[in-house]
Design a protein around this nucleic acid. Structure first.
Length: 447
DNA sequence: TCCTGCGGGTTTA
DNA sequence: TAAACCCGCAGGA
């Protein structure tokens, strides 16, 4: 049985398993015989790595709260996705609930173009897509790779825009609207609520700007909302710094090819955000204490939570098969997504990140510890990898001590000074949004 | 209808 | 050569 210390280590450590180990998604050989895996992370941000169970339904689907689209990297071993950003009101109007409109960009190019032609449901101004430029001026990228009994995840870049509506929220709203369209009865009270705000995508006639007075039963609404409510939240995800200046992989960020987005943004009303305000749910930058990175962490701890109880299905995985990507095979043998549709979605403090206009977003001090060996294009089997060199371990202190201040009422303000072209990165953290719950936020969008 | 992944292709540094 | 990006296709919900 496990000692108390071990249990504590598992549950309290702010490090992800993925960050404790030294690996890169491009490594010919990834860590094997993993004793510990990470719970799924919906809102990853920063240069982070996680190792999920191959049975994790969310990981199997390469899910992200961010709107990520597939990008072709001509490597069938590694699935690459890049962030589409967020759709906002060009006028930056305030919704009835005080939040800002932050729609999930459609993944499909065509659907996204349509989406952008619509108008703000609140003020009828044009909608605007804020592209993600969090990776040296390019969109944040996520990489997925199945190896052995694990799904390896790696992200590069720090999102420089507010969170969009999560995928589950979008889906919930859509199905909710569909149902209401087909079953009209509504109560006067509900009608009043609904008339207070509207959503662009779901007006039956496709005409934005007019409230759709539709009905939904409270119980029904709850059922969509509940899975997202942050009941359980792994601490290592929650004590994220707002900005991780260090690329934990030792990978030098590419030189700036495009001007980094100089947006200023934060997650709560009262601060300007280039004309917009992020909703109160703007996330903290997610990053973890990789032994190779020595950035300081803020000491914010979110509401209590736990990992998503994803049931494991006995899917067989054959590392030898290469024709269909491994995750495809995993999906075939796994239970329906709905069974485990359970996310974390913490309502989190804002980030306050500023990049001076024209200043590179990604120029950070790099600790090079890994030798990068890239896979070649798809048909090439990765047999014979003599050039592989295991990365050396840096052996920096652990990170459990970073969680000392777990009180929700305590939060920190810190200034990070990083050696990066003389740049100074200021990070402010705030306590969790105290009043607004997910349920309340959904109300603003749910009619 | 749109999400998702695949993969051929181009462009740029 | 690597990375970003475009496009169409197909399977699926």
């Amino acid at each position: 049985s496990m000692s108390r210390a071990e249990q504590r280590d598992e549950t309290d450590c702010v490090c992800s398993v993925g960050m404790k180990l030294t690996w890169d998604i491009n490594d010919p050989k990834l860590p094997q015989d993993l004793k510990q895996l990470d719970p799924f992370q919906e809102w990853t941000d920063g240069y982070v790595r996680y190792i999920y169970s191959a049975d994790d339904k969310n990981a199997q689907r390469h899910l992200s709260g961010w709107a990520m689209r597939n990008t072709n990297n001509h490597n069938c071993q590694i699935l690459k996705k890049s962030c589409l950003g967020v759709v906002v009101c060009s006028r930056g109007c305030t919704l009835p609930d005080g939040a800002r409109l932050q729609l999930r960009p459609a993944i499909c190019d065509k659907a996204r173009q349509k989406q952008q032609k619509k108008m703000c449901p609140n003020c009828s101004a044009a909608l605007e897509l804020l592209p993600c430029r969090g990776h040296s001026g390019y969109p944040v990228t996520n990489f997925w790779r199945v190896d052995g009994k694990a799904i390896f995840f790696q992200a590069k870049g720090v999102h420089d825009h507010p969170r969009p509506e999560s995928k589950s929220e979008t889906e919930a709203r859509r199905s909710s609207v569909k149902r209401r369209v087909s079953s009209p009865p509504f109560t006067p009270k509900r009608r009043l609520m609904e008339s207070q705000s509207i959503h662009p995508e779901e007006t039956p006639d496709g005409e934005p700007g007019r409230p759709a007075l539709l009905c939904v039963e409270p119980a029904e609404r709850i059922s969509f909302i509940e899975p997202n409510f942050p009941q359980h939240y792994p601490q290592f995800q929650s004590s994220e710094p707002y900005y991780n200046p260090h690329n934990a992989l030792g990978e030098a960020p590419p030189t700036l090819q495009k001007p980094a987005n100089p947006r200023l943004y934060m997650g709560r009303p009262g601060y300007d955000f280039q004309g917009y305000l992020a909703s109160p749910s703007y996330p903290v930058t997610s990053d973890l204490c990789d032994p190779r990175s020595d950035f300081t962490q803020n000491h914010f701890t979110p509401p209590s939570s736990s990992s998503a109880p994803l049931s494991s299905s006995s899917s067989s995985f054959d590392p030898q098969t290469k024709a269909p990507p491994a995750w495809k095979e995993l999906l075939k043998s796994s239970a329906p997504y709905a069974d485990n549709h359970h996310y974390y979605s913490a309502e989190y403090p804002c980030r306050y990140s500023s990049n001076a206009p024209g200043s590179p977003a990604g120029l950070q001090t790099i600790i090079t510890t890994t030798t990068k060996v890239s896979y070649q294009s798809c048909p090439k089997p990765s047999a014979g990898l003599p050039s592989y060199q295991p990365a050396k371990a840096a052996g920096l202190p652990g990170c459990s001590s970073l969680l000392e201040d777990a009180s929700p009422s305590s939060y920190s303000t810190e200034v990070k000074v990083t050696e990066e072209s003389g740049g100074v990165i200021k990070s402010l953290s705030f306590p969790p949004e105290p009043l607004q719950t997910k349920t309340e936020r959904l109300d603003a969008y749910d009619y």
